[in-house]
Design a binder for these strands. Structure first.
Length: 132
RNA sequence: UCAGACGGCUGGGCGGCCGCGGCCGUUUCGGCGGUCGAGGAAAGUCCGGGCUCCACGACGACAUGGCGGCGGGUAACGCCCGCCGGGGGCGACCCCAGGGAAAGCGCCACAGAAAGCAAACCGCCUCUCUUCAUGAGAGGUAAGGGUGAAAGGGUGCGGUAAGAGCGCACCGCGUCGGCGGCGACGUCGACGGCACGGCAAGCCCCGCCAGGAGCAAGACCGAAUAGGGAUUCCGCGCCGGCGCAAGCCGGUAGGGCCGUCGUUGGCCUGAGGCGUCCGGGUUGGUCGCGAGAACCGUCCCGCAAGGGCCGGUCCAGAGGAAUGGUCGCCGCAUCCGGCUCCAGGGUUCGCCCUGGAUCGGGUGGCACAGAACCCGGCUUAUAGGCCGUCUGAUCCG
RNA sequence: GCGCCCUUAGCUCAACCGGAUAGAGCAUCCGCCUUCUAAGCGGACGGUUGCAGGUUCGAGUCCUGCAGGGCGCG
């Protein structure tokens, strides 16, 4: 894998969100992060954002989405896996969460999702090298 | 210096007196004091949202309305930014509803031989027959003429009986492939050898989007009147239980609703229901109602639209509706006069004419226009003034 | 606050699926008829199709934005 800039695209279609919801998910602080390996051989990373009515009215939900978008813009290039779709879901504390804490939430969720998906992939893929 | 292109800002200022609306304080309930008080379009209501209520089981298809190059921004948009393609301009720059016409239907008036599928009016050429001249027939052509908005590629060379993509070059068109780009698309090469006209702001097809209503939404408190009358239309089937009966209860057929249809499912009704008109009552209050997609500033990301972090600020809200009037000074516009200065011209050397600066006075004004639940856009109206970037021409260095 | 319609000669109205000089009636003016007037007959005048753009070869007609007027609902 080269360190060439990974292309990040926005997730927009409903079926993509539903597919991501069926894959791995991890809740940290004010956000829930879902991740799905599309397994279609393209290194593209796609991100979607969701905030339900539970978070608040339209203005609050949109604010939550904007903050998550800014957080993803900052964190994802270092921690995202090529070929994955990510969905960030706002929990009730998201709009008020302090900015550094919010970044930590997203970071740690991404890291734990990466290890979890590796553990799932290992039994089936025998060719992968054994853990160090 | 002149002409022009693009973007942004501003929307007279200060003071005195009188007056208006909200809130707060005070009050001897008369007032008094303090504080805040319209816009960039508050407008048109042309789009998009928030908010509120109503509706909403699922799946598929359809209908209706809109949108239409590509990518991005956004809560969203028909908006904005960037890019592509086409058109205009010397240029800065501007304009474009800019998908599909080889899915189908329709239309293309007049003119013209012919208007969508190939044909041939005048011509041109060959052959045959004929004649004094010429004319007739058969065939080949589409270069030229003429009509039109548009006539089946264009220009040139070759070629030919005359001609023709018949052949070749370039351009255009189409197909295929390579390369670049997220993409619209660009570019290069090969092939085809002209077939495929225009209109979709005509129907339509394709893709995408979309529940309905609106602050008179809606919530609460209070008051009053009444449990009415007239009338159109549709309907009142069956079974069981209780009861002497009138009747009551339950079920079912049936009917209605969920935009339409289908599958499946649900709800209401099941003997009354809907509509129209007349009559009667109320015409109160509070909330909704402004601390928000708000404004200002630093930093970060982005070409930009825009987004995020942090810090700061509080900024109209009432009802058919408040910001006005007047005076003084200044600014701007305009008119008259003075004559001090400057420039140009004329001159009978007295001065005169034109323009500018300056002084005094007068006049008239100082645009468009007034929040009504709130935001984002668009569109339209708008005297004058200011700033920035850029282009062309001319002159000087 | 919503929804819909209209605008053509001085007046009242036409104009087909977009097709070329935008037509009628009344009014006005001129002439004929009549002694004169009215009526009648013949003729003439009269139009930025509300405005500004766009689509099209071509717009009164189609589309967009304005302006003016009218109607309905709450």
């Amino acid at each position: 894998m080269t360190d060439a800039p990974i292309k990040i695209e926005r997730l927009r279609k409903r079926p993509d969100f539903l597919a991501a919801a069926r894959a791995f998910s991890c809740a940290r602080g004010a956000v829930v992060v879902q991740a799905r390996d599309r397994a279609d051989d393209t290194p593209l990373v796609r991100v979607g954002f969701t905030a339900t009515r539970k978070v608040g009215g339209a203005v609050v939900r949109n604010r939550a989405k904007r903050r998550m978008r800014a957080a993803a813009h900052e964190v994802l290039p270092g921690l995202a896996r090529p070929g994955f779709d990510y969905v960030l879901i706002a929990r009730s504390g998201a709009p008020a969460r302090a900015w550094p804490r919010l970044l930590d939430d997203v970071k740690s969720a991404l890291i734990s999702l990466a290890t979890e998906s590796d553990r799932q992939a290992r039994p089936s893929a025998t060719a992968t090298p054994p853990p160090a």
